[in-house]
Amino acid sequence: MSLDNPLTVLYKEIDGSKITTDVYLPHSDSSSPQKYPVVIDIHGGAFMLGHSRMVSMPQIKDCLERGWIVLVPNHRLCPGVDLLEGPMRDIRDLLAWVYDGRLDAYLAGKGSHRADLDNVAVFGTSSGGNLALSLGFDVPRPAKAIFSLYGAVNFADPAWKAPLPHIAAILPKLEESFLKKIYDEVPIPTDSSVSLEGQTESGASKGPDFSRPRDAFAFTQIATGNVISAIYPSGEPGGSDPGYEKVDPVKNISVDFPPTYIVHGLADTMVPIEMSRALFKQLQDKGVPSGMTEVPGEEHTFAMKMEVGSKTWWLQREGFDFLEKYIGRGPV
């Protein structure tokens, strides 16, 4: 299977939004069905940007070489739906779709690959790291192991309200009425044509297009320190979840939380490394098998830019080695 041409299947439809996942299959010469561990890979984008093709292809290749089936899902994008009822609900429904046997039903007509439902793991970058961690709590059956790369957590930290001048510096003057056009998007979109990293559908890094309301809105919220209030207004004072108890992994670590690994860049200016350190402390305090790698010199979204074989490549790969300890390798 070519990395440029994965299988794609609809796993959910709600209020007109058709939500798909890409499916990457490891090499197999078998003519009879064989079980492979499943790994879900969730894209980043501040919950407002990106889609399933905007992930690191070298990471997917690494997973396939370990004999894992890789699912890269889309989810509905905020702010037309909030974090809990949109992205988080969709990713949890994907996990249920796998556990309910619907991935296997889809694969039955595609060859010998079958899902090993005893070995399902998840990883994600940035907002995708938050969504990966959400498969460890408030679900009937959690993922077996989790890997968060600079995930968005610890929402009560004042750093989430801090403006980011280096992002504001790239913004043109934008009218509020133009930004609000994002709320006119019906049905709720599940993809945007640019990622937080600036990567476009073609793979080129052209950066955001501020003539599009979604790009303009998302980067404005990032620049002004309003991401969390934009994607989860229930967490604001007077809202229904002022403590972020329903959406913040830091508030939901228990002794039964799945084994979890964290990788975060020391030079991250968008999600400060202290966020992940707070999560790691919670994991340690609860006795959850866990680990954390701090990557020198790396900014946010480095997974999209790292070179295979670089020091950063080998450091972040420790997260995949951690997953392998719990889900094993497939029959490659």
Rank of each mutant, 00 (worst) to 15 (best):
L266A: 15
A223N: 05
S234D: 11
L149G: 14
H264L: 02
I167R: 09
R214F: 05
N252M: 11
K251N: 10
S254T: 15
A152C: 14
L164S: 14
D268W: 03
P242V: 02
P272K: 10
A216P: 03
A216S: 13
G239L: 00
E185D: 06
F178D: 05
K251H: 04
G235S: 08
S211P: 00
A169Y: 03
I262Y: 08
K161N: 14
F219P: 02
G203L: 05
I188D: 01
K251M: 14
D268K: 05
P163W: 10
S205V: 12
L266H: 07
K180R: 15
V227H: 01
N154A: 15
Y183K: 09
K181A: 01
K161C: 12
N226C: 08
K161Q: 15
N226H: 11
Y261I: 02
E236F: 01
K251Y: 08
N226E: 06
K173A: 15
V227A: 06
E197I: 04
M270P: 00
A216Y: 06
T190P: 02
A132I: 08
E197D: 09
L171D: 08
P140C: 13
D268A: 07
Y261W: 14
A132P: 03
E201N: 15
A132F: 13
Y183H: 14
I188C: 11
L266F: 04
P165N: 09
V250Q: 05
S202V: 02
T224S: 14
R141W: 07
G265L: 04
M270V: 13
T224R: 11
A267L: 07
T220K: 11
W160F: 12
A156I: 03
E175P: 00
M270Y: 02
S148P: 04
P142S: 15
D157C: 13
I182T: 10
D241C: 12
A204P: 00
T190S: 05
E197A: 15
I222H: 05
P172F: 14
S193A: 12
A230N: 03
D215L: 05
D157H: 15
Y244H: 14
D157E: 05
F217S: 01
S205Y: 13
A218V: 00
Y183I: 02
L133C: 13
G151I: 03
S211C: 03
A216C: 04
G243Q: 04
I231K: 04
A218M: 07
G235W: 00
S195R: 00
H166P: 00
N226I: 01
S254Q: 06
M270E: 11
T269P: 02
I167A: 09
R141H: 14
A168T: 00
I170Y: 01
I253L: 09
F217R: 05
A223C: 06
G136F: 10
K144E: 02
A169D: 12
K206S: 10
D184H: 02
D157G: 09
E175F: 11
A204R: 11
P163N: 09
V153A: 13
G225I: 04
W160V: 08
F147E: 03
P208I: 06
R212L: 13
M270G: 15
L133P: 07
L164H: 12
G235K: 02
S193Q: 06
P158N: 07
G238W: 00
T269S: 15
F147Y: 15
V194K: 09
E197M: 12
F155Y: 14
A156F: 00
D241M: 08
